[in-house]
Design a protein around this nucleic acid. Structure first.
Lengths: 161, 161
DNA sequence: CGATGATCGTTGCGCCTGCAATGATATTGA
DNA sequence: TCAATATCATTGCAGGCGCAACGATCATCG
């Protein structure tokens, strides 16, 4: 029979497996210390970078469904890591920002997370990493032209500048 | 202040976003036609390749939690795409195999899935793809030596031979 | 102004998942 | 042979997710 289909050589599968494995390893860091989920982690990181923002803005920046952001923020607020306030100019928006406890948690977690990434990439030649990034970007670019594909966050398109 | 942490440059985030985007684009193919989830898709593909297998075996081969496999198989059986039978030699095992309808569905879906992958990789130089695979493998290798990381399926380690 | 339509955040619903516990069967070793 | 242990698949449970619908607020324009 003809060349059987090998799941383990199929790009979507390979990326899903690798991504899941890395995510799980990473959440062993920030999950153990503060019980954060992936969504909560992304929200916290974005808040540290961008200060006071709305749900919609987080949704647009970190590739999370708006309902997912809303719930993640609620959980973080319940845990005291985040503040929710009504925006001054527009009563529809919610102004979200890190609390002191949230900043402290992030200051503690962030180095560990960066260290995980560093270890994963330590043995890889710089030139290979550049190619790796280029391929990722090329795949995204192809998806950008595909009407059936989800659009990606604008912020992800300017990753390297 | 010092170099702020950019989520969009963080490897785990970048891979998660890319993988999710590809997965969603792909499931637009096999989800639209037959309503398959990712878990069900993986089970079907594995069955086509390996014939009669047990839940445990699928679990070991396609990076799915055993309960996830069990439920995916149950759903597929309910949809008539898969057969479940008691194994002859060992009454604990369940012998799972594609039904005629399952084979037909897969024959219909597989080319579309492969085409999606082909399009995504079409514009990428062969040399870059080789580097890309090498980097993926290197990251996996690092994770393999990490006691905190989940082990990966043995079958994924022999992807290219 | 006032009405229509757009935007924002939340929530209800159904589904899927991970984990642990369970029951059933095999294997091991005294 | 039989008790203790291991393996296999399923299931209960709690929780997160995606999607659509909703109420609340704002913007637009007649």
């Amino acid at each position: 029979m003809s060349d059987p289909f090998r799941l383990s050589a199929f790009l979507p599968y390979r990326l899903a497996v690798l991504s899941a494995r890395i995510s799980r390893r990473l959440s062993a860091e920030y999950g153990r210390s503060h019980g954060l989920s992936v969504a909560e982690w992304r929200v916290m990181v974005h808040l540290q970078r961008c200060g006071e923002v709305s749900v919609r803005e987080i949704h647009n920046c970190v590739n999370l469904e708006k309902s997912r952001v809303s719930r993640a923020v609620s959980r973080l607020a319940a845990a005291g890591l985040v503040r929710k306030a009504a925006a001054r100019t527009d009563a529809r928006l919610v102004s979200i920002s890190l609390s002191a406890a949230g900043e402290a948690a992030l200051t503690e977690i962030l180095p560990a997370a960066i260290e995980v990434e560093r270890r994963l990439l330590a043995a890889i030649p710089t030139a290979d990493l550049a190619v790796f990034s280029r391929v990722i970007e090329a795949i995204h670019a192809t998806l950008d032209t595909d009407p059936e594909a989800r659009p990606r966050s604008p912020m992800d398109r300017t990753a390297d500048d």
